[in-house]
C-alpha cells in the first residue's frame, strides 16, 4: 500500500466537503460538510504519520486534538442553529439576514 491513494482519498473528501459547504442552503448541511472537511484533514495527518514518520505518533496525537476541536465546533454550531431557528423559524442560510432579531 502506498501513500498516494490515502492522500487522494483525503483530498476527495475535503473537496466534497468544500462543495457542500459552498452550495448547501441548509445550515445543518453546511455543518455536516465542514465535518467532512475535518475528516479529510485527519486522514491526511494519520497517513503522513504512518508513511513518513513511522517511529513517531505525533500526527495521531494531533488528530485526537482535531477530533476534540471538531466536537466542540459542532456542539456550539448546532446550539446556535437551534437558537436562530427558535427566532426566525428557518434553517436556510439565505434567510439569516438579521443580526438582531
Amino acid at each position: 500500500m502506498t501513500l498516494a491513494p490515502y492522500l487522494f482519498l483525503s483530498a476527495c473528501l475535503f473537496v466534497i466537503g468544500l462543495f457542500g459547504a459552498l452550495t448547501r442552503r441548509n445550515v445543518i448541511g453546511i455543518l455536516m460538510s465542514v465535518e467532512l472537511m475535518f475528516n479529510g484533514a485527519n486522514i491526511n495527518l494519520v497517513a503522513f504519520n504512518r508513511f513518513l514518520h513511522p517511529q513517531s505518533t505525533l500526527g495521531q496525537a494531533v488528530t485526537v486534538f482535531t477530533i476534540t476541536v471538531a466536537a466542540a465546533e459542532i456542539v456550539v454550531g448546532l446550539a446556535l442553529v437551534l437558537a436562530i431557528y427558535r427566532e426566525v423559524s428557518t434553517v436556510y442560510a439565505e434567510d439569516f439576514n438579521l443580526l438582531r432579531g
Binding site: 501513500l3 498516494a4 492522500l7 513511522p54
Partner: peptide, 9 residues
C-alpha cells in the same frame, strides 16, 4: 499528491 507517488511504508 503526484510528488508522493510510489512511496510505501
Amino acid at each position: 499528491i503526484a510528488a508522493y507517488r510510489g512511496l510505501s511504508a
